[in-house]
């Protein structure tokens, strides 16, 4: 609830600059961590940088008033997926120290594509949404409403998703078991 209150105050008109300040701080941290993640020579460090990025994204959700998504992000990504990733690192016996061969030699292709993508996206975003503001009278989107939405409008998608999860579970077991 603290986060929620924080978000609510932050989003009120007087507190908008606080929210903005928070956002830019978080965004900077996230971008730096993301850059470190894709460039570090140490697999475990990369995982830890990913942790930072994911927490920052969760904080962004709070700023946007999506408390439930933020909570889910923390639970699923930070709680479950990160642990899985670390397991993956350990089970494949990656070098725990520095590894000079983590990147391959054609880094320039990746940077070219990445920078090109960023350029196209930022240009078009700038062109299309320049000056658009979020509604200032913003109320956090309540978990209850999200739940109602999921279980009424999107019920079929929800059921399909549950089947998908089951299939993934079975698939993962079948693929990974020793036989």
């Amino acid at each position: 609830m603290n986060l929620l209150l924080q978000a609510e105050t932050a989003l009120s008109e007087t507190g908008e600059w606080i929210a903005n300040g928070f956002f830019y701080l978080i965004a900077t941290v996230a971008v730096v961590a993301a850059l470190k993640m894709v460039s570090t020579k140490n697999v475990v460090h990369a995982a830890l940088y990913l942790l930072v990025v994911l927490s920052a994204v969760a904080a962004t959700y709070v700023i946007l008033g999506a408390e439930f998504a933020a909570a889910t992000q923390v639970l699923v990504y930070l709680g479950a997926i990160m642990v899985l990733m670390l397991f993956g690192v350990m089970l494949t016996r990656a070098k725990l120290g520095n590894d000079e061969e983590l990147d391959h030699d054609q880094r320039w292709i990746g940077s070219l594509v990445g920078v090109g993508m960023l350029a196209v996206m930022s240009y078009s975003l700038w062109e299309f949404y320049q000056g658009e503001r979020l509604p200032s009278e913003q109320s956090p989107q309540r978990t209850q409403e999200v739940a109602l939405e999921i279980f009424s409008t999107y019920i079929v998608a929800f059921e399909a998703l549950s089947v998908l999860l089951l299939a993934a579970l079975i698939g993962a077991i079948v693929v990974a078991r020793k036989d």
Partner: peptide, 25 residues
């Protein structure tokens, strides 16, 4: 708050992700 500040933030993260997919071994 501008909508664009979030969208651009996302775009940066996305591009970094693409770079990672393309360069990591």
């Amino acid at each position: 708050m501008f909508l664009n500040q979030f969208l651009l933030f996302a775009a940066v993260l996305f591009s970094i992700g693409v770079y990672g997919v393309l360069t990591r071994r």
